[in-house]
């Protein structure tokens, strides 16, 4: 059964000469437990698709279903219990005046947990941050350390679907390996479903079973990971993308 289903999704911003059709007629289906990749040109609408699913795109049309339920214009609390997102920009997504402890504690509290202290420690441990980071503020963390806090926050409510927008592009390769292994383990343990945006085809190849290639707001091709490895794309743009990343 599909855990997430998106049909004929259109998302636009602005009016008149400033109108941008950021996503046009996007359709894809993600079965429960699958990891689905979104790749493509910078500005092609990848982040916008994830934002539309989480209810952060003001104007959209089409249908989005989560676990068989069609989403309305508003997302309720139960939605955020099921779906969580890790944003592309680890700088903008953390409140500058909240410590790591406050961010995670607050999120756990909103999700109704009681054993907050133990859970904060566990979450930090899960994402490979030691106890010395617990009371730091965002400006006292490096880019990669912030992204780990953002991932910990998304995991706090034990969601079923994780939307990951370039989750490791701010991370060095050793931390990337740790985070990707963590995401692999979590998916196996909790049968999580992932939608993952990345510009790194090797990362998508490692994490995902299938992927969509986007250009100019449209999904131009959906392929499985074997086709990616064999470099067998059918659309000219996907072929170009594969050619450019030889060596990955």
């Amino acid at each position: 059964m599909s855990m997430l289903s998106v049909s004929d999704l259109n998302v636009w911003f602005g009016t008149g000469r400033d109108r941008v059709d950021a996503v046009r007629d996007a359709t894809f289906d993600v079965p429960a437990g699958e990891s689905f990749g979104l790749v493509g040109e910078s500005g092609s609408g990848k982040s916008t698709i994830l934002r539309a699913i989480t209810g952060l795109a003001p104007t959209w049309s089409g249908r989005i279903e989560v676990n068989g339920m069609t989403l309305g214009p508003r997302r309720d609390r139960a939605f955020y219990k099921t779906v969580q997102m890790v944003f592309q920009d680890p700088y903008a997504s953390l409140h500058p005046r909240h410590s790591v402890d406050a961010v995670l504690g607050e999120t756990l509290h909103l999700h109704g947990f009681k054993d907050i202290d133990a859970r904060v420690v566990k979450l930090l441990d899960d994402v490979g941050l030691g106890g010395q980071f617990r009371f730091r503020y965002p400006h006292q963390l490096s880019g990669g350390q912030r992204q780990r806090v953002a991932i910990a926050r998304a995991l706090a409510g034990e969601p079923e679907i994780l939307l990951l927008d370039e989750p490791t592009s701010a991370l060095d390769v050793s931390v990337q390996a740790e985070i990707l292994n963590l995401l692999t383990d979590l998916r196996a343990e909790r049968s999580l479903t992932y939608v993952m945006v990345s510009h790194d085809l090797a990362v998508v190849g490692h994490m995902c079973g299938r992927l969509a290639v986007m250009k100019d707001g449209r999904i131009v091709e959906i392929m499985d990971v074997q086709a990616l490895r064999d470099r067998q794309a059918t659309h000219p743009y996907s072929q170009e993308l594969l050619r450019n990343s030889i060596g990955a």
């Binding site: 390769v173 990337q176 390996a177 990707l180 292994n181 692999t184 085809l201 090797a202 990362v203 190849g205 490692h206 990616l228 490895r229 990955a248």
Partner: peptide, 11 residues
Amino acid sequence: LPRLDQPQGKL
């Protein structure tokens, strides 16, 4: 580093 040509379960 993950590699497209050498899939592996864990990095």
